[in-house]
Computed example of a mutant assay.
Amino acid sequence: MTIPATATADAASLAAGDPRSPRRSGAPGVLRAGLASISLELRAYYRAPDTVFFTFLFPIMMLGIFGVAFESMGEIAPGVTMAAYYLPGMVAAGVLLTGVQNLAVDIAREKGEGWLRRLGGTPISPVSYFIGKAGMILLTSLAQLALLLAFAALVLGVELPSEPELWLRFAWLFLLGIATMTLLGIALSAVPRSSRSATAVVLPIVLLLQFISGVYLQFTMLPEWLQNIASVFPLKWLAQGMRSVFLPESFAATEPSGSWDLGLVALLLAAWLVVGLVLSLLTFKWQRRT
């Protein structure tokens, strides 16, 4: 994604002595600039067709393909179609794509094309910059989620949960998952050496994680050594948590431990959140011009 020129112009106006400058007004100004940045980020995001397709529409398209391709197989359990079975994995994959893939490619491009250096020449705070990024990720992920669930229910006939406690469980899984993936996306943005290599570096990583984490394949079908590798990464646990929301309780027996292990899911996602935060602080460089 390319930062629109208006973003640099807005930052320049702050440098010129705008009374709303974070340098003058402190934390409230930082927050105000961050909230304004969310709007700019959203406009830039939806003006990039490749980004919208591969991070926003991709899980919806994949759910449609799996739902239609395996429709002839009928239900795999009473009331559970193949589309219903794949839905939790696609929800988890959507969080991964929106958080990790989108941010990693986005920030790497901005760094490689010099936009971070331009912003570094203004008094705009890194906090405002990341408020804009995180706000954009949260809002686009919520929009993607709403569209994915509507598509599953209205087009594929998936019966969504009706118990309030399941939706409460979904809420904390989603919020913890999107926070974790956002920080990991920021950390991963330090890996590509240039803006041209960003997609080539990031895309295979997220694609491989989807295949070994129970998104496209039943997790227990994988060899034990591959299950052990996948269990190190957060996508496996997020997908498992989402299955506990959208699938009947009887499906817990198909997990490697025979239960949903929600406490372990929360613990490992939180651990990866801390890892992402530490790596982001260590690897992200806010480039200031001398």
Rank of each mutant, 00 (worst) to 15 (best):
R23W: 10
R24G: 13
S25E: 06
S25G: 10
S25C: 12
G26N: 07
P28C: 00
P28F: 00
G29E: 03
V30M: 10
V30P: 05
R32W: 09
R32L: 10
A33E: 14
G34H: 01
G34S: 05
G34L: 01
A36P: 02
S39K: 08
S39L: 11
E41F: 15
R43T: 09
Y45D: 12
R47Q: 08
A48K: 13
A48W: 11
P49A: 11
P49E: 06
D50K: 10
V52Y: 14
F54Y: 11
T55H: 05
T55D: 13
F56E: 02
L57W: 11
F58K: 02
F58H: 04
F58T: 07
P59N: 08
I60S: 07
I60K: 13
M61S: 10
M61Y: 15
L63A: 09
L63C: 00
G64Q: 00
G64V: 02
I65G: 12
G67D: 08
V68Y: 09
A69L: 07
M73C: 14
M73H: 13
E75M: 15
E75Y: 03
A77P: 00
A77V: 11
A77F: 08
G79Y: 07
G79H: 00
A83V: 00
A83Y: 04
A84H: 03
A84W: 00
Y85D: 09
Y86H: 06
P88T: 01
P88N: 12
P88G: 01
M90C: 12
V91L: 10
A93G: 12
G94M: 12
G94Q: 14
G94F: 08
G94L: 08
G94P: 15
V95E: 01
L96S: 07
L97W: 12
T98D: 04
G99T: 01
Q101V: 04
L103H: 10
A104M: 03
V105F: 07
D106T: 02
D106M: 11
I107E: 08
I107K: 00
A108D: 04
A108K: 01
R109L: 09
E110D: 07
E110P: 05
E113W: 05
E113S: 04
E113M: 11
L119S: 06
L119G: 09
L119C: 07
L119Y: 06
G120Y: 03
G120D: 01
G120A: 04
G120T: 00
G120K: 12
G120V: 11
P123G: 05
I124D: 07
S125T: 05
S125N: 02
P126Y: 09
P126S: 05
S128N: 07
Y129L: 15
Y129S: 04
G132S: 14
K133D: 03
A134W: 15
G135T: 04
M136V: 13
M136D: 14
I137F: 14
L139E: 02
T140E: 08
S141I: 01
S141K: 05
L142E: 07
Q144M: 11
Q144F: 14
Q144E: 12
A146Y: 13
A146W: 09
L147D: 05
L147S: 08
A150T: 09
A150L: 15
